[in-house]
Simulated scan of single mutants.
Amino acid sequence: MEGKEEDVKLGANKFPERQPLGTSAQTDKDYKEPPPAPLFEPGELKSWSFYRAGIAEFVATFLFLYLTILTVMGVSRSPSKCATVGIQGIAWAFGGMIFALVYCTAGISGGHINPAVTFGLFLARKLSLTRAIFYMVMQCLGAICGAGVVKGFQPTPYQMLGGGANVVAHGYTKGDGLGAEIIGTFVLVYTVFSATDAKRNARDSHVPILAPLPIGFAVFLVHLATIPITGTGINPARSLGAAIIFNKDHAWDDQWIFWVGPFIGAALAAVYHQIVIRAIPFKSRAYFPSLT
């Protein structure tokens, strides 16, 4: 097949992200600023590596939802929290799965597993608009399927235990929930930028190998802080998948928070890292250079 032949020849993605994770980032010790990704790369749509990356995002998000929702249900169904892994266990499940899945998929798709991460990297010109939209669609489909499989295996417990759907907890306002999602996603996306920084990769060869670890740990810490407030979204695909499969009114009442919050947080992280930390001129990253 043409796609397989292409993959064998290249040994990697034909149209990769400009700043890959994992060992694929270890090219040489000399720092070179990756060129900004074009807004649209027509060749991507004809490349098997493009679709392979989307499939990797789908499968990773599917596994992420399946394992984490089962963990949430296990804690919710126990009459005694002391007999379960508790909030700490839920946080470890989310953080641990991100660590494992980023490690597995980083060399194929970049290991986003989260539309907010994809959005932040898109704003920083790390991938094209075509790839960003494709990733987000595949992530949402994977999340829906992951939650759907859990419900298919355990339909009654799934509905009774809330299906892992994100809602703002009683005693907190919508503003509290929105703030928690913004800051939580900022922490995650800022960690992604820092862990995959091309300049650090050139200086410290161990950084790209360890990249999945701080990302997973950031997810763990954010969950510890925000599970009591929103159940922790910081991932629009995760929130959407659970809401669609659970499909109760209260699961949809706060759904906007789990999209607006993460996207604002991701945008702030992208601006902070690129403009403040890295001091990359905005003009060099503008999508319409002729207008700047």
Rank of each mutant, 00 (worst) to 15 (best):
residue 4 K to T: 13
residue 4 K to F: 13
residue 5 E to N: 03
residue 5 E to Y: 01
residue 5 E to K: 13
residue 7 D to F: 11
residue 11 G to L: 09
residue 12 A to W: 10
residue 14 K to S: 15
residue 14 K to Q: 11
residue 16 P to I: 05
residue 18 R to W: 12
residue 19 Q to D: 08
residue 23 T to Y: 15
residue 27 T to N: 10
residue 27 T to Y: 10
residue 29 K to E: 06
residue 31 Y to I: 14
residue 32 K to R: 14
residue 35 P to V: 05
residue 35 P to F: 03
residue 37 A to L: 00
residue 37 A to S: 12
residue 39 L to C: 05
residue 40 F to S: 15
residue 42 P to R: 11
residue 43 G to H: 10
residue 45 L to F: 14
residue 45 L to R: 13
residue 45 L to S: 04
residue 46 K to M: 06
residue 47 S to R: 12
residue 50 F to W: 08
residue 56 A to K: 02
residue 57 E to K: 11
residue 60 A to E: 09
residue 60 A to Q: 14
residue 62 F to T: 02
residue 64 F to Y: 15
residue 66 Y to Q: 07
residue 66 Y to D: 03
residue 67 L to A: 01
residue 69 I to F: 13
residue 71 T to Q: 13
residue 79 P to I: 09
residue 80 S to K: 03
residue 80 S to L: 09
residue 95 G to L: 09
residue 96 G to L: 08
residue 96 G to H: 07
residue 100 A to H: 10
residue 101 L to E: 10
residue 103 Y to Q: 14
residue 104 C to V: 04
residue 105 T to N: 00
residue 109 S to K: 03
residue 111 G to A: 03
residue 112 H to E: 07
residue 116 A to M: 12
residue 117 V to N: 04
residue 117 V to S: 02
residue 120 G to Q: 07
residue 120 G to A: 01
residue 125 R to A: 14
residue 125 R to Q: 13
residue 125 R to M: 13
residue 126 K to P: 04
residue 129 L to T: 15
residue 129 L to D: 12
residue 134 F to V: 06
residue 135 Y to C: 02
residue 136 M to T: 01
residue 139 Q to Y: 01
residue 139 Q to A: 01
residue 141 L to F: 13
residue 141 L to P: 02
residue 146 G to P: 06
residue 148 G to S: 06
residue 149 V to L: 11
residue 158 Y to H: 09
residue 159 Q to W: 13
residue 163 G to A: 01
residue 166 N to L: 12
residue 168 V to E: 02
residue 172 Y to F: 15
residue 173 T to H: 12
residue 177 G to L: 07
residue 181 E to V: 11
residue 181 E to C: 10
residue 185 T to I: 09
residue 185 T to W: 12
residue 190 Y to T: 11
residue 191 T to A: 11
residue 192 V to Q: 06
residue 195 A to K: 05
residue 196 T to Q: 04
residue 196 T to E: 00
residue 200 R to G: 07
residue 200 R to Y: 03
residue 201 N to K: 12
residue 201 N to T: 10
residue 205 S to G: 01
residue 205 S to I: 03
residue 206 H to K: 07
residue 207 V to E: 08
residue 211 A to H: 01
residue 214 P to E: 07
residue 215 I to W: 05
residue 216 G to T: 00
residue 217 F to D: 03
residue 219 V to Y: 10
residue 220 F to I: 05
residue 222 V to K: 08
residue 222 V to S: 02
residue 223 H to D: 02
residue 227 I to S: 05
residue 228 P to I: 15
residue 230 T to F: 07
residue 231 G to N: 14
residue 231 G to P: 00
residue 232 T to Y: 03
residue 232 T to A: 14
residue 236 P to Q: 11
residue 240 L to W: 11
residue 240 L to I: 05
residue 241 G to H: 06
residue 242 A to C: 12
residue 242 A to E: 10
residue 248 K to C: 01
residue 250 H to Y: 12
residue 252 W to G: 09
residue 252 W to C: 06
residue 253 D to F: 03
residue 254 D to E: 07
residue 255 Q to P: 00
residue 256 W to Q: 03
residue 258 F to K: 11
residue 259 W to I: 04
residue 262 P to E: 11
residue 263 F to V: 07
residue 264 I to M: 00
residue 265 G to P: 07
residue 270 A to T: 03
residue 271 V to C: 11
residue 272 Y to K: 00
residue 279 A to G: 01
residue 279 A to L: 05
residue 279 A to F: 11
residue 280 I to F: 05
residue 282 F to W: 10
residue 283 K to E: 11
residue 284 S to T: 14
residue 284 S to D: 14
residue 284 S to R: 09
residue 289 P to T: 00
